[in-house]
Amino acid sequence: MSIIVDVKKYLALDSAPKRIKEFLSIDVADHAYLPKVEDIKSDWVAYIAAPAFKLIRESLGKDIEAFASIGTGSGIDVLTGIELLGAKRVGFTDLQKSVVATAAQNVRNNIKDFKSIEFEFGNGDLLQPIQHGKRKYDVIYENLPNVPLASNTKIEDKRNSGHYLEKREEPIPQFVHEQMLDLHYLALKQAREYLANNGAVYSTLGGRVPLSAFIKLGELAGLSSQIFTYSWKVQAEPKDVISGYATQEEAGLGPFHFYRAKDLQKAFASVPIHESGCRAFEIEKSLEPSKLTASEAYEAFKQGEIIGHTVAVLKSSLK
């Protein structure tokens, strides 16, 4: 499948992009997540990552040297890192070979001067495919899935960006597993070896668990974490995702938090993105009366309600 992306609209730019083409031609592999270019408020890169990247660039006051994406999908997050952060070296991974090959083609084909960018990429588990490269990155970005695949489902049977293979050899703290943050924890642990001096991992996390759980996640992974930005989005693929959380909730995990979109819109109406991280716990508290469990959210969805969730960008750095 192929899509065309209007970069100025997609990344909310005031002028034409400098480093990537004005209109991206993106091929999406069969098992990769399909960017929501026609519904930007449901798209993780455009609506969540891009504002955070702009804030990172503003706070640094300069371009970064190296950017990495764990689980890139179509590669559109890598192109966003090149455009908004000015990265000159990019690394990216995904689980399946066909997904990474397509992402690499997308990145190369949509950079204005692809010879000015150095690439490191491979397929496999988290950051391991690029472990033999230059390794150190100023910004590592991840938006990994939380919901495990059903035991009778093969990863080849569906687009799997919203799901993952649950069986892992590494020990995972019980607290992390109960919050369904397994892959984020493993990514943070690996990332410690890949961070440049003053570098950070930026994890985009659906706020379906308390914000305090994200801070503890970073601590358990051996990093120092803070809420960098806080916002909300409409739940993409609500039937599959909300029901997936409801199933896990019934199995004893969670509870997980969802909200009606109208309640989220009201709570975040007057919160500038650059203040959102500092005000995150305040906003979370204000939403307490309107939160829904996953089971309640799924019933509301079936009744025609638009369901959303909060989103935290967690910044994790070396201690």
Results as ranks from 00 to 15, higher is better:
Ser15Ala: 15
Ala103Thr: 01
Ala29Ser: 11
Ser116His: 05
Phe175Asp: 15
Ser224Gln: 15
Tyr185Arg: 06
Ile306Trp: 01
Lys233Met: 15
Ile242Met: 02
Asp14Trp: 01
Asp30Gln: 14
Ser212Ile: 03
Ser224Glu: 11
Ile283Lys: 10
Leu85Val: 06
Ser161Thr: 03
Gly61Pro: 09
Gly162Glu: 12
Trp44Gly: 15
Gln235Lys: 05
Ile111Met: 03
Phe301Glu: 09
Ala196Met: 15
Phe175Thr: 13
Ser151Val: 15
Val37Met: 11
Lys41Ser: 14
Gln226Ser: 13
Val78Pro: 13
Ile26Thr: 07
Ser42Met: 10
Leu217Glu: 00
Ile130Glu: 03
Ile76Leu: 06
Asn109Asp: 02
Gly218Glu: 09
Ser270Asn: 15
His177Thr: 15
Leu181His: 13
Asp240His: 14
Thr102Trp: 00
Lys167Asn: 11
Leu60Asn: 07
Gln235Asp: 04
Arg159Asn: 12
Ile40Ser: 07
Phe119Val: 11
Val234Thr: 05
Lys9Thr: 12
Lys266Asp: 01
Ser276Lys: 10
Lys54Pro: 06
Asp27Leu: 12
Leu314Ile: 05
Gln235Thr: 14
Ser161Val: 02
Val45Asp: 11
Asp30Phe: 07
Tyr164Phe: 08
Ala200Pro: 10
Ile3Trp: 08
Leu314Lys: 06
Ile155Asn: 09
Gln174Thr: 14
Phe214Asn: 02
Asn152Lys: 14
Gly162Thr: 03
Lys239Met: 14
Gly133Ala: 04
Ile4Asp: 07
Asp125His: 09
Lys239Phe: 15
Leu205Val: 11
His309Ser: 14
Val100Cys: 03
Pro289Met: 04
Gln190His: 08
Ala29Phe: 09
Ala87Leu: 07
Ile111Arg: 03
Leu205Arg: 03
Ala269Ser: 10
Glu65Lys: 14
Lys167Phe: 06
Ala46Asp: 12
Glu169Cys: 04
Gly252Thr: 12
Gly222Arg: 00
Gly162Ser: 14
Gln235Val: 12
Gly277Leu: 00
Glu284Thr: 04
Thr293Lys: 04
Ala104Glu: 00
Ala101Pro: 00
Phe214Gln: 14
Ala213Met: 00
Ile140Lys: 00
Glu166Ile: 10
Leu84Cys: 08
Leu287Tyr: 02
Cys278Met: 10
Pro148Ile: 08
Leu24Gly: 09
Gln174Phe: 06
Gln174His: 11
Gly122Met: 01
Arg159Gln: 11
His163Tyr: 08
Ala269His: 01
Asp138Phe: 10
Leu11Val: 04
Ala46His: 05
Ala103Cys: 00
Lys18Gly: 01
Pro51Trp: 07
Phe301Lys: 09
Thr310Met: 08
Ala32Tyr: 01
Asp39Ile: 12
Tyr245Gly: 02
Ala46Cys: 10
Ser203Val: 14
Pro272Ser: 04
His132Thr: 11
Ser151Cys: 07
Met180Gln: 04
Lys239Thr: 12
Pro51Met: 10
